[in-house]
Every structure is written in C-alpha cells, then in structure tokens.
Amino acid sequence: MPSKKAGQKMKKMPKTAQAAQHQKREQRAYKQLVAEKQRKPLYFKNFIVAFVAGGVVCTMGQAILAFFMKQGLDINAAAAPTLAVIILFGIILTAFGIYDEFAQFAGAGAAVPITGFANTITAAAIDFKREGWVFGMGAKMFIVAGPVIVYGILSGVFAAFIKFIIWS
C-alpha cells in the first residue's frame, strides 16, 4: 500500500509527462519557426571567396618555394624555409591585427593554409599573455591549435597503419 504522499505523486505523474510532451512540441514548433526566419548563409559565394583567397595564399607560398629553389635548393630542402617564411608572414599579420580582418573576408581561405595555423597560435599567445608568461601564454598558447595537433598526429598514425597493411 503506497503512502498518501506517494499516491499523490503518482497521480501527478501523467501531468508532468504531459507537460514534458507539451514542451517538446513547443520546442519543435519554435525550431521550425527559427528555421523559417533564418536566412541561409551565402554558401556559394563563401566557397568561391575562400577558394580564391586560399589560392592566393598558396600561390604566394609557391612563389617563395620557387625563389628558394632558384637559390640552388632541391624541392625537399626548399620546403622547410618556405614554410618558415610563410608562417612568419602569418604571425606578423596577426600581430598587427590584420589577419583576422582578412579572415572576415576570406573565411576558410584564411583558416586552412598554414598561415591560419600560425594565426591560431599567435592569437592565443597574444590574448593569454595578459595572464602571465607561464599560466597564461605558456599554458594556453595551444588552446585553439591543440586539437589540430592531436588529431593531426592521430590521423597520421592511422594513415601509416593503413599503408603498412596494404604494402606488407
């Protein structure tokens, strides 16, 4: 025999279930309304702009590579200084507050090249320097770039593993 209190509780149960269902329905209707009113992002325009802007960054990288190869380095040896130079560009533009403006316009075209990676580390370093060299900048410099490194290495391991299986 359930106590009086528990009995009351049980009587209330269907009502709360009803309320929950009502809330769910209300939420679904609202989400639909939001989807109706929300303007879709200009995907096509964004794709084109990102492609062109990212392409320009990569062409610059290619030009720098060509410059180093002209100095007598082979393509493997020239890759390292090319990366160093273009990363330096990314860092300098971030430090002067230009890179994020460029990203407003270029979107993924600014984020995907290695200049974007340089930007994520520099931006975090500048931001967290205010909390000190050790627990600020030192600890939080990789707060945005960290996942890229973690999952970059992880996918490298997977790729190597697949290659190992196929070739052996």
Binding site: P41, Y99, I126
Partner: peptide, 13 residues
C-alpha cells in the same frame, strides 16, 4: 568565444 585576433569568420546571425 575565441582569442581576439583569431581567424574566425563571424556568422551572419
């Protein structure tokens, strides 16, 4: 959100 100088394109919304 993010560090101030980060290369994030703000969404229209």
């Amino acid at each position: 959100r993010h560090p101030i100088e980060l290369n994030v394109k703000h969404k229209a919304i």
